[in-house]
Structure formats: C-alpha cells, structure tokens
Design a protein around this nucleic acid. Structure first.
Length: 585
RNA sequence: GGUGGCGUAGUUCAGUUGGUUAGAAUGCCGGCCUGUCACGCCGGAGGUCGCGAGUUCGAGUCUCGUCGUCACCGCCA
C-alpha cells in the first residue's frame, strides 16, 4: 500500500497516527536545522517536517528533493506549533520517519501553482503539468460533475443513453467534414460526425422514444476561443413531443444543473422570437443580463437634410446610461471601434443628454434640441446618458448596434459572470439565402420542420418561413439548439427540393432516412447542448480550452503530441492515397 | 482566405529618437538560518533579442518576408 491517507485528509484528530502519504513535492523550505516540505496530490497539501532529531539518512534525502519529485512519506502526525489557517491540513504536519523517492523530476518549465508564471503556449505543450494545477484540475472536476448530473437527470426522465457510430458518411451540407480513408474499400472515405443527427432520428423511428448521449462531434472549420475541431454535445431526441415539451424538459435539465452544481435557482426561461432578438439586441443570441435595447429611430430622424441619415435604410440607437461625460477622445475611440472592418459602420453619431437637460450632439447642425429630446424619449435616455446612433443597411446596422451594445456593456461592467440569464430564442427562419451560390440553405439543418402556419409560404416566399427551431442562450452565448423534425417523407422531399438537392442527391445522401420514414416514423424533436460551452460558463471562463483536458490550438494543432502529422508512404500506399499540396513544389 | 496583437534569460516581462558591456522579477545553483508555509538573508550562473533578408557607420529597436502563438472577421446546417 503506497498510502494510508491523501494529502488533503489529515486533521487535528489524526494526531499521533502513523501514516503513509504519496504525492508530488510542491515546495521545500529549508530553514537550516529544520526543513519543511509541502507534499501535494489531487486532494490537497500536507506539510512534512524534518529536524535535527531526524535520522541523518532522512535529512540527506530531504536535502536532495526538487520540485515535482514523487515521493512516499512515512511518519507520525503531530500538531503544528504554528498553524496555517489557509490550509485545510494546516493544523497538523507529518514528522518523517522514512522518505522514499519514487520518481525524480526535471525542473518544470513553469511553476505548478494557481498563479503560474507559464504562458498559454508552454502550458499547452506541457499540458500534463498544467493539469497538476488546482485551478485547471477544478475545471475538469466541474466538467465531470456536470456530465454526471446530466446523466442522473436524463436517466430519471427515462432517456436511453445510446452510442452512435463515429465513422459515418460525408454529406456536403453544413460544416466541412473530417474525413477518414477506408483501407478495405478502395478510394472511399468515412466522415466523422458533425453531430449524430440522422442516427438519433433513426433511433426515434426505432421506437427508443427518448435518447441521449454525451458525445464527441467534429467540424473542420476555423477555430475560436469557444470552438474546437472536436467538441462535446449533450445530444438528445424525443418522440411524440412538440416544441414546448422539449423546451420544458431541457429547461429542466439546465435548471437542475444550476441547482445541483452551483446551487443557483434560476427563474423560468423567457421565450423570445428570433425577430425580436434581432431587432432589440441585434443578435440571435442576446445577452439579457442588461437592457440597453436597440431602438428604431428611422422615421424620426429622416427629412432634416442630414444626407447620411436621409440616404440610410435604417437608423438605430442605443442608450448608454451615465456616459454623457464621455470625452471627445473617448467618442473618437468609439467611432474608430465601430469603423473597424469587424463592425463595419461608416461612422457614429452621438447625443449627450447633459445633466442640465440640454443636448449636445455631433449632428447639432441638423437637429434642434426638441428633435433630440424626442430621440431621448424614444430610447429612454435620462440626463447624464449618452445616445449612440448608427445608420445604414438594416440587418447590418442591427448587428453592428448589437456588437456596440455588448462593448458598452463590457465597459460599463454590466456583464457579471456570476449572473446567469438564460432564455429560449424561438421561431428561427427555416432558410437562409446565400448570395454567392444563389440558393437557400437550411438555417438549422435540412430535417427541421417549418411552422404549420407558414407551410404555404414554402412556395411563395421561402425566406419568410419560420421553423420550429430553438436555441438556448445564456448570457449571450449559444449553449444549445434544436428543432422539431420533419417526419413525413413528402415534406422532407419538398425541403430537399427547396435546398436545391436533386432527387438523386437526396436519395444518395439521405435515402436511408427517407426509407426509414416509410416504416412508421413518430413525430419527434430534439436538441443538443454544447457541453464545453456550458461547463466553461459554469466555470466563469471565456475559453472552452480550459475545460478540455487536451485541447487543440487556434490552428487545430495539438502542440503536446504535435498533431496533425504526416504519415508514412507505406500508410499512404495502403490507403491508395497520394498527397499533393497546392501551391507548393 | 483576411485583420490585428505578441515573440528578448528556464519563465513572466521592461528595454527611450537606431548608439557603450541588453535589464528586473521569479525560477535555478551555492552558502547561512529552529516554526516556515510566496520563508528570509548573502552570493552566483544563465541571452542565436523566433528565423531569414534588407536599410544604416551602427538594428532588440526601422522595412520586407517567414515561422510560431493568441484574439477577431469570413466560415461554423
């Protein structure tokens, strides 16, 4: 037996016990006649002590200890003469009778402590050392706890956890597939699933009724702080349900997780139509922790000979509370901010509502104090506030104002990580027009059911058709989404039609699903949560990398194992592959 | 595919208008120290300034390219 106790376990009532501990050397404090050693494992830190009364052999071994050596410590628990209130084990120490070095360690490239001196790059390269740090490990413990709680909840609700294949079939819709060559089937490829979408629908046809899986999904698209090429979903599907049933069930899951894991009671989630989210928040994932809503001033500001506004399709404004004091420099800086290509506004018009009730704006030449007062009333501004206006193409300006709103929310400290405001965004458009390819794409996916009342529009005005699709949004982050599915072969064919699939393409790619629907498909609907995002939100982090044990970097590389990598000619040959890199000789 | 930031000691960073021998903190090594717990004190070692080219009498500093990394836009049904 390597140990009788963990390093986080010993307390004052263990005094007198002979114990064995095992762990890593956190730090050695050599005071000359006596030496203190902090021994660390997953559970905590226990102080070991050696003094003049200790055997010479033990003193010699202790003197040679370095950071991150793995040792076994055998000794007697005694009360400390000077206690450390910051440590759960701070009342006791272990007086060493024997010490066994199990493993020596090179000096680690960064310090293994909460406030490490290591940069991201180095910590990723030595991720196994980074994971020794309590802050990092805690994130993964949180992840494990949330996965467990999810299973408890869904099992209670009669969901069947079912695994679906990882080697599946490539389809051109949606994200790029990761692709795996088949050795046994020359010239053919598997794809890794972007989600188990079709399989879970087949499980509904199979009568499973309620399916879930905590499952890896793969998308070969460019990455972000909140996007990894492989990520984890809580993936679910239910039969004989409508939209409300699904939302209630997964609102239940979300609230259960908040309660179990964070002990936070969350009130009922509001439902917000997509159109409202876009018009009030300039985003399909509104951060509802703060107001600062977008207001449409188009009708009020036109006709005053201000050419910029008169020639704009849409003029919108947000009111930033208490910002009337902004200096010229700050306003210029904000103007530059909205003019960056990422936002793409042509300029920024401001109106300061001064404390004395007067207005000062960048368009005083064109508008009277009374005009500005009307604007202030519409946006709900009070003396001391600053109104910011953008103008241009409606959709563009709404999203730009949405970005500006978030930026101002950040600057005003309105986005508190400890406050959680979930909501359901519902009634998404079914289709999205793409100007480049001149065709519609499914906004969610091709199996999403249109709203009954909009089905007639499918022929006359497809862009207007709303879907039974929904997203769970928390604090401006898209945590999950799903839809009521089409379960009728004719409607599904019509959808493929609208999406520009020929009969043959549809048959070739999704024939198995269409066939399944001919054998008695139940009405069904589903949802998937981005598990990494949910965990990082619970942890108060912006990057999902911090809740993944071995994440990949911006370019999809794992800098620890150095992947991806080339493969041998023998492997290529076996797979009938030849590598040709474009643009290189 | 694009925009921007960063790259200097093991690590995190500073480095003025381009000008002497490139600094600090921390870590590491050695010495001293009986109650430390970010121990303290004294001393020491440690640098291809990412790489390549260019401008210049002279480049860590300026220019171009390239590599790495981070953030964002496009992209992500």
């Amino acid at each position: 037996m390597y140990r009788t106790h963990t390093c986080g376990e010993l307390r004052i009532n263990d005094v007198g016990k002979n114990v064995k501990l095992a762990g890593w050397i956190q730090r050695v404090r050599d005071l000359g006649a006596m030496t203190f050693v902090d021994l660390r494992d997953r559970y905590g830190i226990t102080q070991l002590v050696v003094d003049e009364k200790s055997a010479e052999s033990i003193r010699e071994k202790t003197a040679k200890l370095g950071r991150e050596f793995v040792i076994q410590a055998i000794g007697n628990v005694r009360e400390r003469s000077s206690k450390n209130k910051n440590l759960p084990t701070g009342d006791v120490e272990v007086f060493l009778n024997e010490i066994v070095v199990l493993s020596v360690s090179k000096v680690p490239p960064f310090t293994i402590q909460d406030d490490t001196d290591g940069g991201d790059e180095l910590r990723m390269k030595y991720r196994y050392l980074d994971l020794r740090r309590e802050t990092v490990r805690k994130n993964l413990e949180l992840r494990a706890e949330m996965a467990h709680a999810t299973r408890v909840y869904l099992n209670q609700q009669n969901f069947i956890e079912t695994e679906t294949p990882v080697l599946i079939k490539s389809t051109p819709e949606g994200a790029r597939d990761f692709v795996v060559p088949s050795r046994m089937n020359e010239g053919e490829f598997y794809a890794l699933p972007q989600s188990p979408q079709t399989f879970k629908q087949l499980l509904m046809v199979a009568g499973f009724d309620r399916y879930y899986q905590i499952v890896k999904c793969f998308r070969d698209e460019d990455l972000r702080a909140d996007r990894q090429p492989e990520f984890t979903q809580i993936d679910c599907e239910m039969s004989f349900v409508d939209q409300e049933d699904v939302l209630k069930t997964f609102e239940g899951l979300t609230r259960y997780l908040f309660k179990e894991v964070k002990n936070i009671e969350i009130e009922e989630f509001p439902w917000m139509p997509y159109s409202e989210a876009m018009e009030k928040y300039g985003s399909d994932k509104p951060d509802t922790r703060f107001e600062m809503l977008i207001h449409n001033l188009t009708e009020k500001v036109k006709g005053n000979n201000f050419a910029v506004f008169d020639s704009s399709e849409f003029i919108g404004a947000i009111n930033t509370t208490g910002c009337a004091e902004y200096s010229r420099k700050q306003l210029d800086e904000l103007t530059d901010w909205v003019k960056r290509p990422q936002i793409g506004a042509k300029g920024l018009v401001y109106v300061k509502y001064n404390d004395d009730g007067s207005f000062k704006s960048s368009v005083d030449k064109f508008y009277s104090q009374d005009d500005l007062k009307v604007w202030a009333e519409i946006v709900g501004a009070k003396p001391g506030d600053l109104i910011l206006l953008l103008s241009g193409d409606k959709n563009h300006i709404l999203t730009a104002l949405g970005e500006l709103r978030l930026e101002m929310g950040n600057r005003l400290g309105l986005r508190d990580k400890n406050i959680f405001k979930p909501l359901w965004v519902v009634d998404f458009p079914l289709l999205e027009w793409d100007d480049e390819t001149k065709r519609f794409y499914a906004m969610h996916h091709p199996f999403t059911s249109p709203k009954k009342e909009d089905i007639l529009l499918l022929d006359s005005d497809p862009g207007k058709v709303r879907a039974n699709a929904y997203d769970l949004v928390i604090n401006g982050v898209e945590i999950g989404g799903g839809s009521v599915r089409i379960f009728n072969k004719e409607l599904q064919s019509k959808m493929f039609d609208l999406l520009g699939f020929t009969k043959e393409e549809a048959e070739n790619q999704f024939g198995f699903l269409m066939s399944a629907f001919e054998f008695g498909a139940p009405p069904h609907a589903g949802i998937a949560f981005g598990f990494d995002r949910l965990v990082s939100m619970f942890a108060g982090l912006n990057s999902i990398r911090d809740v993944i044990a071995f994440p990949k970097n911006n370019a999809g590389r794992d800098v620890m194992i150095d992947s991806p990598s080339t493969i041998s000619n023998e492997q290529l040959d076996e797979l009938n592959l030849k590598v040709v890199i474009k643009g290189k000789k």
